[in-house]
Write a protein that binds this DNA or RNA. Structure first.
Lengths: 345, 345
DNA sequence: CTGAAAGCGCTTACAG
DNA sequence: CTGAAAGCGCTTACAG
């Protein structure tokens, strides 16, 4: 690979001059600039970002640690993060925690070793001493979707309280009383909050949420399967299962189908997170939609604000209920759920 | 951030000695090693990979450019790539082309600027002069899933011919004669090959594939929607639509539903790529499954072979047909498709 | 076993 | 406007 020296030699100038034209420093003669550009072109020269970053102490790179790449929610989040970052002149490196704290920390460390300018993380289960240290050390950082109490960094997330209230009201109106939830890990904020919001909303309707109706999941499909199996083995199974994310809803569907049961006739299903496939399941799944794109963009803006020395802003956006047929219909059998075309983005 | 100098000072040795213990060079006295390790611990020292890579001219990182992060197939591929790479001591940086050649080239350049040791790419539509250059320049590279003719690098991919023959035989046996395909971009190998395999298989049954039954898609959902709309507007619409990837199948479903039609009663659907949701759609979707995890792992092994100076191997793995209900049933209405629990990985 | 020194490819005061 | 030189944080012959 051609280095800046080669370019300098070919252009007949010093490396300092080459560097100046590369960084569009004003004081370069038109002639020198021309010769340098020609040499760059001729040699197919590309600056070595490692060397540049080592010298300038900035990488113009953001790290993003997501909880699970197989989860369409995080994948959509990653996409919007990357777009916004690029628009602001940064690139992003993604790490997949796979819902495992050790793997999360592994990626955080790797990212830090690469000297990223800032870190976006959606913390996996449990507390991470490492993340505390990182924040304390002053590394620019923001939490997205999930956050860790006691770590003083901006948080960008969706608030599902209202949507969960709407969901419970919807279920209540349909006549359902035995509502169960498949929760995420208690140590994650989204795991915890969704259960508590669900419990509070039920309580507002005079309904209790017995322990047997709280399935312990980990946001991955297999756990949704297991929790649903347990619900179905109960003497009095729930009428509705609310999965705290889309993958656990997938697992729930697997279990329901394996038992030869029908949704919503035998048991109803609702999910947190809305994904394009929910329109096409049999029946379509009632879900709570997050403004995923907005979250990703706001998170990047907050992080870049910190990196560039501006005051960052925590952002909380509302989630919203999307009623479909998976918990039963208010009025008999519908001829055909005529939902229009749906964007994939 | 503490640097190697700080560690050296704290341990009372030279930076050379610190470097030696960090790289487990044999000739270091036990005492020096102990003091260095203590200093590392005390300072929370982490080597700066930028500096190390600049010096050693290797980054121990692989670049992966996938066609679309929103496509579960690529997301699964990315996951297996990352796992295998980690097992071999490499980390990977992912770039999302979003099916756009310019964005692909952008990521290839960014990755190269970071001096990755090798590049894994699934080329987007069209020819990329850049990729030709990269290969010619001797950068370790392998194609995965899709490849570009004329670029002499190993290819790791699935062969769908046999599975497509099986699919057509299945459709034929069900009595279907008017088969349509939603193709990927003609310039992608997977776009092209799947159409040709489909055409050949039909021809073996004495069936023609009229141009009107070839929808031009781009592997993304919206194009599947558009192509299906066009099929449905035909005087004689097809009986079956075969989508060349899962996202276009999603789009097809959107269009079919928007028209108030039923699968398979009004029109049948099959897809290349199998994803967990296909089990739960109404009805479950007949699909061609790729050995995605295997592909990702084989691609990494081939790339690392090149990087480390061993002879690499191209790999072609068979895809296989998974028959479900979306093209009709051989024998009346089944009581319940009793598919067992399904792994998400 | 250990350290001084060179050098990887850049950027950026400093002097002219 | 331009170049020589220092220095970012490492690694690695070289000499001892």
């Amino acid at each position: 690979m051609a280095s800046i020296k080669d370019v300098a030699a070919q252009a007949g100038v010093s490396v300092a001059t080459v560097s100046r034209v590369l960084n569009s420093h004003p004081s370069v003669s038109p002639d020198a600039r021309r010769r340098v550009l020609a040499a760059v072109e001729a040699l197919g020269y590309r600056p070595n970002t490692l060397a540049r970053s080592l010298r300038t102490d900035q990488t113009r790179t953001l790290g993003l640690v997501i909880s699970d790449v197989l989860n369409p929610y995080f994948t959509a989040l990653a996409r919007s993060v990357e777009e916004e970052a690029r628009a602001l002149g940064y690139s992003v490196i993604i790490g997949n925690a796979d819902e495992q704290p050790e793997q999360q920390d592994h990626h955080v460390r790797t990212l830090l070793d690469r000297r990223i300018d800032g870190l976006l993380v959606s913390p996996a289960d449990g507390d991470s001493p490492l993340l505390h240290d990182v924040a304390r050390a002053g590394t620019p950082m923001v939490f997205v979707d999930r956050w860790m109490p006691g770590v003083d960094v901006p948080v960008v997330r969706a608030d599902g309280h209202r949507a969960i209230q709407d969901l419970v009201a919807h279920l209540y109106a349909l006549g359902h009383r035995r509502l169960a939830i498949i929760a995420g890990p208690a140590a994650t904020t989204t795991g915890n909050e969704r259960v508590e919001a669900f419990r509070a909303a039920m309580s507002a309707h005079g309904l209790a949420l017995p322990d047997a109706y709280i399935g312990q999941g980990d946001f991955q499909a297999a756990s949704g399967r297991r929790a649903t199996e347990q619900f179905l083995a109960l003497p009095q199974p729930p009428e509705i299962v609310f999965a705290a994310d889309n993958l656990m809803a997938l697992g729930a569907l697997d279990a329901i189908r394996a038992h030869g049961l029908r949704v919503p006739g035998d048991i109803g299903l609702a999910a947190f997170d809305d994904i394009p496939w929910f329109v096409h399941t049999g029946p379509p799944i009632t879900a709570i939609a997050q403004p995923t794109g907005e979250l990703g963009r706001a998170a990047v803006r907050a992080l870049v604000d910190i990196v560039e020395g501006r005051p960052p802003q925590s952002v909380t956006l509302p989630a919203r209920l999307v009623v479909r047929g998976s918990c039963g219909e208010r009025s008999g059998e519908p001829p055909l759920p005529a939902s229009g075309p749906r964007s994939n983005a």
